[in-house]
Amino acid sequence: MIRAGRQHLVRTIADLAAQQGIQVQSYHNAKPHLVPGFPAPVSSPGSRTRLYDGEQVDAYLTGKPVPPLPT
């Protein structure tokens, strides 16, 4: 679920691929978003499009602790 006031931080798989300089299809094939420790999607379970919190993803990719989502 996307928290109020955080919609500007939402990222799709295409956004994650672009951020890491990888083609979308290569990103889908490599599945780096499924490795242990990668932030969980904020989209509803079973939703067609996986959405991720940009603040959490940025922290993970820079090796910093992943912050919890606000309640």
Rank of each mutant, 00 (worst) to 15 (best):
P32D: 02
G37D: 06
L34S: 01
Q56V: 11
V57E: 10
A17G: 00
L69M: 03
T71N: 14
P67K: 08
V42H: 08
T62H: 11
V42W: 06
A14L: 14
P67F: 08
V57I: 14
M1G: 02
I13D: 00
H8P: 00
D53G: 08
R48K: 15
T71F: 08
Q56D: 10
A18R: 14
N29E: 13
Q25M: 12
Q7K: 01
G46M: 13
K31R: 12
R48V: 15
G54T: 06
H33Y: 02
S43H: 06
D58F: 07
V57C: 04
H33K: 07
R48Y: 11
I13E: 06
G21T: 04
V57S: 04
G63M: 09
G21L: 03
L61M: 12
G37Y: 02
L16N: 05
G5A: 11
S26P: 02
R50D: 04
F38Y: 11
D15Q: 00
V66C: 05
P32S: 05
V57H: 04
L9D: 06
A59N: 03
G5F: 04
L61V: 02
T12V: 10
R50W: 15
P32A: 13
R11N: 01
L51S: 01
L51Q: 05
G37A: 03
G46V: 15
L34W: 15
T71W: 14
A18K: 10
I22C: 06
T62G: 06
Q19S: 12
R50K: 11
Q20M: 08
S47M: 14
H33D: 09
H8I: 09
A40P: 03
H8N: 10
D53P: 14
Q20N: 08
A18W: 13
P36K: 13
L34M: 13
Q25T: 14
D15P: 01
R6I: 00
A59S: 04
P67L: 10
G37I: 05
F38W: 02
A14Q: 05
T49M: 15
L61A: 10
G5P: 08
D53V: 13
P70R: 05
Q19A: 11
M1W: 09
P41G: 07
Q25Y: 09
R48D: 08
I22T: 15
P39G: 04
H33A: 13
D15F: 09
K31W: 06
P36A: 10
